[in-house]
Design a binder for these strands. Structure first.
Lengths: 164, 164
DNA sequence: TCCCACATGTAAGATGTTACATGATTTA
DNA sequence: TAAATCATGTAACATCTTACATGTGGGA
């Protein structure tokens, strides 16, 4: 019990900790809304696999709701053990470096291979998409009130925006 | 021929394009020195697997150097086909968003679970490590002269430094 | 009635890591 | 002479994605 899990597991566990009693589907939505800005938002199917692992390890409990003639849903809650393990991980895991995968920067570096116009077109495409993303981030921001988190979430995309 | 490859393949191909005739070992070093700032630097073993794939696809050629009684080395060069495919990728691939995996930010978000002192300790650890990283980045910077690339490379860690 | 959002999973496959295995050359 | 660096790979495994399969409920 309580071996080391991948960071994604702890991230999901953490999301469950302040939004208790979620379905896998809802959890994925939370992940898309928050996690994606400083971690990867796992695919739907991975959320389910992760949840069944956490359940197997006793870090979450599942409650089966199958109302007569209704739709089957399964709600997950973090257990005391889960909270314990999560805290332990927060304390003990080393402060790893952020990993950035920036395809646009990569291609900019290789830009000497193609005509400047192509690179410009790519950047334009990127900036357009950025605008959309910023808008969606704004929504997330509006939906929160606690100051601290927002700062952190906002920082990265703001910096990326700088880039243009 | 010339299907789509993962971004990492093109990244390595690109590195080969301006540092021709490298061994797998050297390629890995280049990747560590430059790629890691805006992409992941693949593990040694993956570099070799990737090179044999690229070789199989005809995008690179390998020259076997086995001097009598000496150490076996294999140097890789990008082919015309490889350069063509790389250019095609630079032109056609969509301008994907950067992906950030930021364990420290993640744990900051979950910080309410542990005592502030623990969080502070983690941040301190992180900042210390950042200092080292900045120093190593400075080296890379010094070893280059062309202005453009440096800017891009420098941007991210500088922003991360902001964070403290 | 048709489509979209909700809801849950399985299977196959790609990507990428760590551990293992081996050996030569250089430097302290 | 011992350790670090150079050099190349294989095997096992973990992570994560896409495609597939299935079905309910609500709204246009």
């Amino acid at each position: 019990m309580s071996q080391d899990l991948p960071t994604t597991s702890y991230a999901l566990l953490g999301l469950l900790d302040f939004g208790d009693g979620l379905t896998g589907y809802e959890l994925k939505q939370r992940a898309d809304a928050t996690l994606r800005f400083y971690w990867v938002s796992p695919a739907m199917s991975q959320v389910y696999t992760e949840l069944s692992r956490l359940s197997r390890l006793g870090l979450v409990t599942a409650s089966d709701d199958e109302p007569p003639g209704g739709r089957r849903t399964r709600r997950y809650r973090i257990t005391a053990q889960g909270r314990r393990d999560l805290k332990r991980w927060l304390k003990e895991a080393p402060a790893d470096f952020p990993t950035l995968k920036h395809p646009v920067a990569l291609r900019l570096l290789l830009g000497h291979l193609v005509e400047p116009s192509t690179t410009r077109a790519m950047m334009q495409q990127y900036l357009d998409a950025l605008d959309e993303r910023q808008a969606s981030l704004q929504e997330v921001r509006d939906s929160l009130q606690s100051g601290e988190e927002v700062d952190e979430q906002f920082r990265f995309p703001a910096l990326v925006a700088d880039w243009g």
